[in-house]
Design a protein around this nucleic acid. Sequence first.
DNA 1: CTCCATATAGTCAATTTTGATTATTTGAAA
DNA 2: TTTCAAATAATCAAAATTGACTATATGGAG
Lengths: 195, 195
Amino acid sequence: MSNITRLVVLGAVRQFQPVHGYFLRRELMTWHVDEWANIQPGSIYNALKSLKQDGYIEESGTEAEGKRPERTVYAMTALGEVELMRMLRQTLWTVEPFDTKPVMALTSFMFLLSRAEIVAALKFRIAEIDAKIASNGFDINDVAKSTTTPAYVREIFELSSLRLRAEQQWARDIYDRICDGQYAFAGEDPPPARS
Amino acid sequence: MSNITRLVVLGAVRQFQPVHGYFLRRELMTWHVDEWANIQPGSIYNALKSLKQDGYIEESGTEAEGKRPERTVYAMTALGEVELMRMLRQTLWTVEPFDTKPVMALTSFMFLLSRAEIVAALKFRIAEIDAKIASNGFDINDVAKSTTTPAYVREIFELSSLRLRAEQQWARDIYDRICDGQYAFAGEDPPPARS
DNA sequence: CTCCATATAGTCAATTTTGATTATTTGAAA
DNA sequence: TTTCAAATAATCAAAATTGACTATATGGAG
């Protein structure tokens, strides 16, 4: 499966463990992961199987509520904790000009990292986006040189650059808010209740 | 395969026919389809097979240049023409808040439709984006109500809305330029050479 | 009380995608 | 002139995804 599916499902197991597939399915659907990460219910069960096979999660038994069907319950392993952090960091420190899913997944689980790292990475991302936009400019030149490529393809890169600007604006906003103390991160107390 | 892969490959066959898989592969890679549509070479060959099976394209024979390996050459069928237009229209008149690929694919092949339809659809899209942004607002409310959903998930919708604004700006730009006569569309003469 | 729509908790076959691999040919350098 | 990297034109197994399907249980309407 895509890394995003693994990241989202592993992150969700970490957050809700011990947890069964159907719970994750319902919960993640309320997060609209089918829209922003293109994860369908079937993929969740598949991800659980595959994460288990890799030793990142383990079956902590089965249970049944009333006379409902049996449920397989999963929990993180130590290996899984490490892998989740690795995937999260990898996503945090990489800007994808065309794939919107990584930032979305990142946003859902960034509280697992420290405030300091998120702040540093956001700063990095803001600068990195300038670089990607510059790179798009060169791609536009390349495309213009090809005689077969339709001129319209240029518009794709223009749109990508505009979208990147939007993400940059968003990164700036959230950067400020996180610096101001909003949200709770790893190793911190829960945030003060908001009005 | 995703509809986008089918749309892009069918559109490319239409543009370059009679054409063999390896040409499409190279050409589409210069369009960076691996980046903006997540189409890998293998998917192109698979799309060709599947489009052929559906009767949208046909093998118009095989050829070989010098002592190079044989190449299978494809061309559109009448059915394929209709299907391409259907897919293109479907994409044109639908705004996807999270998936960036459809607009990208659309942009590559919109010249197959008439200028009048593109202009009308862009107008529609500009309004539709306002609606999607409003809808995001309600999703934010929903998410806020769930006690299990992390508050950060809200940021996903904020980011989506900012991205949609960017796409709206892009649609406005290109709308103006197309109204001013830029680019050539179905049933028009080629555009005057640009400086 | 009975019926039926919806919820529960998945599974599974078919379709797609990925990435590695194949087997030949060409071009350029040593 | 040999040799070796890169290009040509794919194929194929393995992995991932989709969406339809299963089989039971519950709750509410009539």
